[in-house]
Amino acid sequence: MKKTIVLKCGGSITDELEAGFFDSIKDLMRSGYHILIIHGGGPDITRYLKDKGIETKFVDGLRYTDEAVLSAVEVMLSGKTNRHIVQKLKSQGIPAIGMQGPDHFFQADLLDYDKYGLVGIMTGVETKVVEALLQLGLIPVVTPLAQGPNGEHLNINADIAAAHAAIGLQAEELIFVTNVPGVMKNGDLLDSVTKEEIDQMLADGTIYGGMIPKVKGALNALKSGIESVRIGSGLAPIWKNGSFSGTAITAEDL
């Protein structure tokens, strides 16, 4: 049975993915791995909303999503970001297919309509369609949207969606693909870190800025039941000479 790797690509890295990243995906596939990609699209969505004169509002770190915002989210995620990633993969000779999260994969309930609007809390994943695509040798590229209990579409956090996908598919690795090599300390890349070490580096400012939500997303994924979570760069190979790059975040003290 082939092992599965789930890659979560943030919206800010999708335009910057470089040749080494795609080469490592090909190497992983040749090494017998299935690959699934979950992607964000925050910057594209925010720009689109601004162009349309629609206010962007975040509540507890989640994008408040009314009907107009959900429409914009679907247009940008499905119509732009997803197609862009699939086209990039295909241009590198990698077989990929775009897939929308609500299409027989992500399932969710409303989190709190009054507070967040049409934002979902993940309730499960339906893996049959994705598994069939993986068996065909394709890389499904999936939007972070889910089907609600009444068939409606809900906006969901891409990090959490990726964690649920990894659990549902019993993935060997969940990798958060970013624009940095991993977690750095004193200019050096750390091979692995624990929650205790992350908490200390957050407190003393070693981890700052855009790395903060990345490590928090990784820790949340570990709490969800993933055995191995990693933060790596899309600007370089994520797999080389039989091993993964980046920083492994371990669950030993969770």
Rank of each mutant, 00 (worst) to 15 (best):
159 D>N: 07
4 T>W: 07
157 N>S: 09
140 P>L: 10
165 A>P: 01
162 A>Q: 04
160 I>T: 14
155 N>Y: 11
65 T>E: 04
177 V>F: 12
75 V>Y: 12
156 I>S: 04
243 S>W: 06
7 L>D: 01
197 E>T: 10
96 A>R: 05
123 T>P: 09
240 K>D: 05
58 F>P: 04
187 G>D: 08
23 D>W: 00
16 E>R: 14
180 V>C: 02
140 P>V: 09
200 Q>W: 00
9 C>F: 15
212 I>S: 03
41 G>S: 09
49 L>I: 09
201 M>C: 03
244 F>K: 05
108 A>W: 05
131 E>Y: 07
173 E>M: 14
252 E>L: 09
227 E>H: 13
84 H>W: 13
224 S>H: 12
32 G>R: 07
145 L>R: 00
221 A>R: 03
111 L>S: 04
80 K>W: 13
232 G>N: 13
114 D>G: 15
132 A>G: 14
47 R>Y: 07
231 I>Y: 11
73 V>M: 06
110 L>Q: 03
236 A>T: 04
107 Q>G: 10
251 A>R: 12
67 E>M: 09
231 I>W: 11
249 I>F: 11
213 P>I: 08
131 E>R: 13
50 K>M: 05
46 T>A: 14
11 G>Q: 04
198 I>D: 02
40 G>D: 05
148 G>W: 05
31 S>I: 10
24 S>T: 00
201 M>I: 04
27 D>A: 15
14 T>R: 01
208 Y>W: 14
136 L>S: 15
154 L>S: 05
99 M>W: 14
51 D>C: 04
65 T>I: 10
173 E>A: 10
13 I>H: 01
175 I>P: 00
151 G>I: 10
151 G>K: 06
181 P>H: 07
189 L>Q: 06
118 L>S: 03
216 K>W: 02
7 L>H: 01
93 G>E: 08
94 I>T: 02
113 Y>S: 10
1 M>R: 12
143 T>F: 08
164 H>F: 15
165 A>T: 12
101 G>S: 07
190 L>A: 06
137 G>N: 06
150 N>K: 14
24 S>R: 00
142 V>F: 05
132 A>T: 15
123 T>Q: 09
95 P>H: 09
125 V>F: 06
237 P>W: 02
239 W>F: 15
93 G>A: 07
166 A>D: 04
145 L>T: 12
104 H>C: 12
46 T>F: 14
198 I>P: 03
229 V>N: 03
95 P>F: 12
39 H>G: 05
159 D>K: 08
179 N>P: 00
198 I>L: 02
28 L>P: 01
197 E>L: 06
37 I>A: 00
193 V>P: 02
90 K>T: 14
79 G>M: 11
86 V>Q: 03
171 A>E: 07
95 P>N: 11
149 P>R: 12
52 K>R: 14
73 V>R: 01
191 D>F: 06
24 S>A: 09
158 A>I: 10
